[in-house]
Design a protein around this nucleic acid. Sequence first.
RNA 1: GGGGGCUUAGCUCAGUUGGUUUAGAGCGCCUGCCUUACAAGCAGGAGGUCACUGGUUCGAAUCCAGUAGCCCCCACCA
Length: 928
Amino acid sequence: MNPKPRRADDVSETLPPRLDPHEIEARLYRRWSDAGYFHVDAEAVTEAGRDSYVIMIPPPNVTSVLHMGHGLNNTIQDVLIRWRRMQGQAALWVPGTDHAGIATQNVVERQLREEGKSRQDLGRDDFEARVRDFAEETRGTILEQLKVIGCSCDWDRTYFTLDPGLSRAVREVFVRLYEKGLVYRGEYIINWCPRCLTALSNEEAETEEASGRLWHLRYPLAASAQGAAERAARAGAEAIGQLEDGRWYLTVSTTRPETMLGDTAVAVNPGDERYGKLVGADVELPLTGRTIPIVADDFVDPEFGSGMVKVTPAHDPNDFEIGQRAGLDVIDVMTQDARINENAPEAFRGMDRFEARKAVVAAFEAGGLLAGIDDHAHAVPKCYRCHTVVEPRLSEQWFVKMTPLAQPALEASRSGRVTFTPERWKKVYEHWMENIRDWCISRQLWWGHRIPVWYCDRCDETIVSRVDPTVCSACGSGDLRQDPDVLDTWFSSWLVPFSSFGWPEETEDLRAFYPGNTLTTAPEILFFWVARMIMAGYEFMGDTPFTQVYLHGTVRDSVGRKMSKSLGNGIDPLEAADLFGADALRFTLLSAAAVGTDIYLDPDDLEASFAPGRNFANKVWNAGRFALMSLGDEPVPALEEVAADLEVEDRWILSRFNHTAAAVTKELERFRLHEVSEQLYHYVWGDFADWYLELVKPRMRGYSGDASRQAARATLVVALDGICRLLHPLMPFVTTALWDKLPWPAGVDRPAELMIAQWPTDRPEADDEAAERAIGEAQELVTQIRSLRKEYGVPEGKGVTVELTSVGELLAGVLEVRGEALGRLARVDAFVLDGGHAGVGASAVLRSGTEVFLPLEGLIDLDRERERLSEEIGRLEGQMKSVKSKLENEKFVERAPADVVQRERDKADTYGEQLEKLRVKRDALESH
RNA sequence: GGGGGCUUAGCUCAGUUGGUUUAGAGCGCCUGCCUUACAAGCAGGAGGUCACUGGUUCGAAUCCAGUAGCCCCCACCA
């Protein structure tokens, strides 16, 4: 009658008990790639009429191979893309890499230095070639890394920001903005890195808090101003004083004393009554022999310091502006590598700025002109690439006027056209947009897009051109010189949402894929990249490049430091994928990626760091493996065919699936990937593996008859198929490997590949509230019995009889049809309803009010158990006594350290609780 | 100086817009199990006055105010 339990040996032989990621991952990736599933044509949208879903990868820098931050970033994008693809959209993920001007140039220059060479030794062309080689190699590695973690990018569209197409777009944009008056050239104070020898944008100068000093310097007033100074001092101007030689001086303060060598004025606030009379007076600038005026300027805060400010137009942006307003001289006293130059007194020439600082202070001190030094915490700007202290420097650079560009981009956020997740970034974005400053785009580097500007040596004409000019457009001369500088690397990446689709041509791709949808990145580049892309989108395409900005957290090490190559605390995604598999890596990152929170991984303990993902991947594998083995290769019926034979657990798992699918879909829409992974974890591990598979085991072996077995088989196939689909975006490899082996009912269409199988949609008919409540009660019953068994020391293997009273209808129903299966899970031989509760036993009450009684007589040696309990109670009482006596000892309590006393008190509490529990148990045994 | 955020179990974090959550998860910890899918596992368990104070409410981890500590972003105070 009962068919023999069958084992599908063919499956069990090919499926090892431990998931071996190496065996499947590379093979499956190649299969997907070869089949062309990653590629999306414009026709899929324009002709087939499908909705497009487009993600632009944040192009990794070719500076170095990917780290775990990229792992997280790209895993998230792949989840979104795979999910949308399964939903039937034309899901396009455009990959690319960024030439990363300053960063890459630095790396190669460092290599050269180790060889004892400089870029000048090589010359511009050879140097560029060398960087190109380096970039090409890293680029290749990066793209391989993305493939290893499973990224389903459209590789046919891979771009590099220096490609001819993208370069053409860069040039077009520069010229257009120039023609519109939005690109201009000018001499301003910019952030200068004296090590990289280039200008930096404001965003590239990162401020770090530093505990510096504030030096107070005395500047003697000129002979002509002595009288005015004396009167001011008499009137209470505390910054005015008298030197030993009788001359009057004023006091200024500075954090950079060396800049005084380039001072051309002292400024006071025009409304400052203390110094009003001194405006126009002359000051003898120490060390230099120069005489400089006192000027009035609103910028000066009368409350700060002495209310008098030294003005160095060539070395401070504010001073530069004061100088402009007052028509002051500009004296640049530093070379480009921040040494004192020939404009300064000979004694200081050639000194590094920090040496010069010391020397200047020493000279002031020697001259009795040092009024004092205070500690002073302030923000020091540093180069974001080499951390050298940035020097404000006067130089001629190219800028983009940003205010006009910012307007539509700001409006996009305010109107909700562009949304931010987490929402708090919306305010940050808007605040920045509202206070946007012009963008310095020229860099004194060799690696990047050359600025398309030529200067005529004959007539001084400036030519900005889409094509390289050969003769001057003004005088016809051929003596043209191209601007030696290159553009900021972000000047190419802010265009990729359209330049990667062939802009400025009006391409089919642009029509199909612009605007895109979701931009996923770390908050660090919100201003560098995200905001600028939105601005460029509106300026050149008339629309935003994407409508959702999702900003995820940072990957940090176990002590909270950002993972970085320089700190050596990074984790190579390849290493993690190699050790645990790409699925495990992905799931670990996703399950830790609660919206907006950082992720902590320990580079010194990869096992522990990736355990969640690895364990879960293995669980999925084994649950699937077991299901496949027990299904065998015999034909499987469709669910509809066995509808009448479904057991309560079948209806339960299908209902649970429907709820899980709905929740997962909803959470994906909100980028709540942590919740997505948690939902799936509990469904797969908790519901499916721990309960459904266990309940269904006897049926799969045919113990409940063939109809029941076929119903279980059909349900199992549907459930496993659903799990593979829901889990696929997160863990594409293991799900595909299982799904490939899944038997399929005849007459039901089977998709060609899991990765393009349809995403589960809501099936309200699958919801079964009764089944969920019934199994819920059954689970509680089983758990309670297990707990009681354990607590009372019933031996593992021993079967028991359990008596139940006040059993509800639902539970009674389940017990009637599935009592045996439930009994197996709790090691219960028989459930007796409305039993007498006679004899010695343990009891519990379920939430529904059902009472559970577990008779213990004959099951455990009551005398021994009593004895054991007494012993344990005795032991605890002894320990309790010694603790109590300690605590009752006044001297101990008074003299022992507080934490030691507290520990004793905690002990007393713990023992007390334990004793209480043991006594209750003992009483339960004694009372019979 | 401005703006934003955080504080929940030993650690890292959830908690769906005040009420089925008796505040959850993973890792770690304790106890017992190699039960023929999985020891990367199974079963059971310990551990939290939800930073503090006050308020609103029938009801607060959740809303409001204040206090303390931590973090991030922006900023030209010499």
